[in-house]
C-alpha cells in the first residue's frame, strides 16, 4: 500500500510525456529518456501509472527491451 502511494506521487500528471515533448521516435539508446520509465527493480512502468499514451507506450516497451538486450538497461535489479 505504502509503495503504491509512493509511486502515485512520482507520476502525478497523467499526460503522455512523449506527446508533450513532441517526440516522434523513441531511440533505444536514449537512456536518459527511458530511465524514469523503469521501476526500481527494472520493470517497465505500466501506462496506467506513467500516463503515457498507447502508441508511445508500445514504442517505449520495444525501446526498453532493445536497451536490455544490449546491456544499457538491466533485466532485473537484485536487492
Amino acid at each position: 500500500m505504502k509503495n503504491q502511494r509512493k509511486k502515485r506521487t512520482l507520476f502525478t500528471q497523467k499526460i503522455c510525456r512523449f506527446c508533450s515533448e513532441k517526440i516522434e521516435h523513441i531511440d533505444f539508446f536514449d537512456i536518459k529518456l527511458l530511465k524514469p520509465l523503469i521501476s526500481e527493480r527494472g520493470k517497465i512502468v505500466p501506462s496506467r501509472i506513467s500516463g503515457n499514451c498507447a502508441r508511445h507506450q508500445r514504442q517505449m516497451t520495444e525501446a526498453i527491451k532493445r536497451a536490455r538486450n544490449i546491456a544499457l538497461l538491466p533485466f532485473s535489479v537484485e536487492h
Binding site: 536490455r68 546491456a71 544499457l72 538497461l73 533485466f75
Partner: peptide
C-alpha cells in the same frame, strides 16, 4: 567504455560501437 547493466561473459564494462 561504459558500465554494463549486467555481466556479459564475465565483463562488467564494455566498449560500445554504434
Amino acid at each position: 567504455k561504459k558500465r554494463l547493466a549486467y555481466r556479459i561473459k564475465k565483463n562488467k564494462f564494455g566498449y560500445y560501437l554504434n
